[in-house]
């Protein structure tokens, strides 16, 4: 790692017009474990890999419910995610109170994006160090947005953030055309497959480290942890990993891209 003159703060442009502090904040996302999101015509699903600091410690929460129609998965600094998710809850509540309407997904996402942008333009603040996948359903259907510390937000059909997420993205790019017409269960399995593809060589998905959330048209946001994900993992067991099966002694073909 090398210092340069232009990376002290987020109010200095480099001669190329880059803002290094913001770019470094984007790197913080990759320090977190992977989270995957995807949408069909009827559902939006988030799946994520939880980490525990030590064997006897609990697993870090990866998915946060915001409202009955909306939730987020995070990768990066969890405290920053809590600040943002609390803010989203406020937005959500105020929309219900003032307009009697669940907040539209794009609007709550833009609200945190605008909040994040300010931190990249004023001295004495730092950009948020967390990436979010926001999944929710509103009057215009299910949506999945990716939020970045730069204040960038984009709507996706499928997205992955966090450590080694490139492998998950590769899966999503290969399979995304099937998502649209997938039913609830198929969509979750697609998500878990993408998640599995991003695991390190010696890791596997277990009921302890896998977390799933589903929200759909006419179906409230629900978080599944522990034994609740067991059934999905069993179904997943019968399906070959798209990277060539994890049980055998296949060659290590895909080298890590992130980390």
């Amino acid at each position: 790692m090398f210092r340069n003159n232009y990376d002290n703060d987020s109010v200095t442009f480099s001669p190329q017009g880059r803002i290094f502090q913001v770019e470094y904040a984007l790197e913080a996302i990759k320090q977190g474990s992977v989270a995957v999101g995807l949408v069909s015509k009827t559902h939006a699903v988030l799946v994520a890999l939880k980490r525990n600091a030590e064997e006897l410690g609990s697993y870090q929460k990866k998915i946060i419910g915001i409202d009955t129609h909306l939730g987020v998965a995070l990768a990066g600094l969890a405290p920053d995610a809590r600040v943002l998710s609390n803010f989203m809850r406020q937005q959500s509540m105020s929309s219900r109170l003032l307009y009697n309407r669940p907040v539209p997904i794009s609007r709550v996402v833009n609200a945190i994006a605008n909040k994040a942008q300010v931190n990249t333009q004023h001295y004495g603040r730092r950009p948020y160090g967390v990436g979010l996948l926001v999944a929710g359903v509103d009057e215009t259907g299910p949506h999945l947005w990716e939020f970045q510390p730069s204040g960038m937000v984009l709507e996706y059909k499928g997205a992955a953030i966090g450590a080694r997420s490139q492998s998950a993205r590769t899966y999503l790019e290969r399979a995304f055309e099937e998502f649209v017409d997938s039913n609830r269960e198929e969509l979750v399995l697609h998500g878990l497959k993408a998640l599995r593809d991003s695991l390190a060589q010696d890791k596997e998905l277990t009921t302890a480290n896998t977390t799933v959330s589903v929200v759909g048209i006419g179906e409230n946001f629900k978080l599944y942890d522990g034994d609740e994900v067991g059934e999905w993992l069993e179904k997943l067991g019968n399906v070959q990993s798209s990277r060539g099966g994890r049980t055998g002694e296949e060659a290590v073909e895909s080298m890590d891209t992130s980390e």
Partner: peptide, 10 residues
């Protein structure tokens, strides 16, 4: 930047 993006959004 990606084919996973929702066209017409953003």
């Amino acid at each position: 930047g990606s084919k996973l993006l929702v066209l017409g959004s953003n």
